[in-house]
Nucleic acid binder design. Structure first.
Lengths: 143, 143
DNA sequence: TCTTTTTTATGATATTTATCATATTCTAGG
DNA sequence: CCTAGAATATGATAAATATCATAAAAAAGA
C-alpha cells in the first residue's frame, strides 16, 4: 500500500506540523531522535520533500526544517506521490494494465470503491487537517 | 497491498479454476506459458499452495495441478495468508502497533472501514465465486 | 575570510523480494 | 525394476528497497 519510505515521510511531516514553525526550525537529528526514523535514511527522504516544497528548510547555523503556511496546505497524496510515484496506490490489485470498471479483473469488485475513496481522502486531506486532529486529541502523533 | 507472489498465486489458482479438473490436470509449464508467470518462480509459489491444500497435485506421468471441489471452496484470504502472512493486509497504514479504532493514528480514519470491508470480502469470497464471475463474463481471466 | 552548523548530494552496504537453475523424489507404464 | 514424466526441494543469482556513511555546498557569525 504505502512504502516504508512514504510512511516515514508522513511521520516526519506530521512531526514538523506539530513541532515546527517559521520561527522554530527543527534539526533532522531531532526528528530522527523523536520519531525513531534512522537518521541518514530520514535525510534522504527529506530531500525530495524539500525540493518539491512539501517541507521548508534553511541550512547553516540556526537552520533546520519547518512547515510554512503553504506547506501545511499540501494534500497528503502529494507526499505519497513524491516518494512512491503515482502508480503504487492506484494500480489494479493484480497489477493488470487492462483492468477498469468496464473491464474488471476478478478482484476488482472486491476492493470496489473502497480504494477509490481512500485515494480521494488522501487528495482531500491536508497536513494541517491531520495536525488539527492530533492537537484536538482525535489521533496521536506517531513517535 | 498484495505482494507480487500472492498476485501470481491468485492468477495461477484462477487459471486452474477455469482450466482444470480432477480429470484434466494441468502442467505447471502450461500455467506459466499461458499466464506469463516465470516458470521456476511459479513452481516455488505452487509448492506452499499444494502443501496447504489450496491446490491439488499429483506427480509423475499424467500428473499435474488441478482444483478439487474442496479447493474451489477455499476463501481467497487463505491464499494471501499462505503467501504473504497475515500481517501485510491488516496492519496499520503507518505500521503502528498501537493503532486501533479507540487509539487511532492520524491516517486511521482515512482508510476507515474500507480496508476492513475489503478483508471481509476476501474472507467471504471463494475461488469458485471468482471462477463463476469469469465464466459468466462478469470479469476476465488474467492471462 | 575562516570556522561551525546545517542541509544537500552521492555512493556504499545490507536486507528483502523476485527470479533462475538444478537436483531429488514420486508415480505410472513398459 | 527400469525409464520417463512430473511435482518437490534446495540453493544460487539478480533486482529492488531500506539503511548507513561521508563528502560537498551553503549560510551565519566572529
Amino acid at each position: 500500500m504505502l512504502s516504508n519510505s512514504s510512511k516515514y515521510a508522513l511521520k516526519a511531516v506530521l512531526y514538523l506540523g506539530i513541532n515546527s514553525s517559521e520561527e522554530k526550525k527543527v534539526l533532522s537529528k531531532e526528528i530522527s531522535d523523536r520519531t525513531n526514523i534512522p537518521k541518514a535514511y530520514l535525510s534522504k527522504i527529506l530531500q525530495p520533500l524539500s525540493r518539491h516544497h512539501i517541507v521548508s528548510s534553511v541550512r547553516g547555523p540556526g537552520g533546520g526544517f519547518y512547515l510554512s503556511k503553504e506547506n501545511r496546505a499540501v494534500p497528503l497524496i502529494d507526499i505519497i506521490h513524491i516518494i512512491d510515484g503515482d502508480h503504487r496506490l492506484t494500480s489494479c490489485l493484480l497489477s493488470l494494465k487492462e483492468c477498469n470498471a468496464e473491464h474488471p479483473c476478478p478482484l476488482h469488485d472486491l476492493v470496489g470503491d473502497t480504494k477509490v475513496r481512500f485515494v480521494k481522502n488522501l487528495e482531500g486531506t491536508t497536513v494541517e487537517d491531520l495536525v488539527a486532529d492530533i492537537e484536538a486529541g482525535r489521533s496521536f502523533l506517531p513517535l
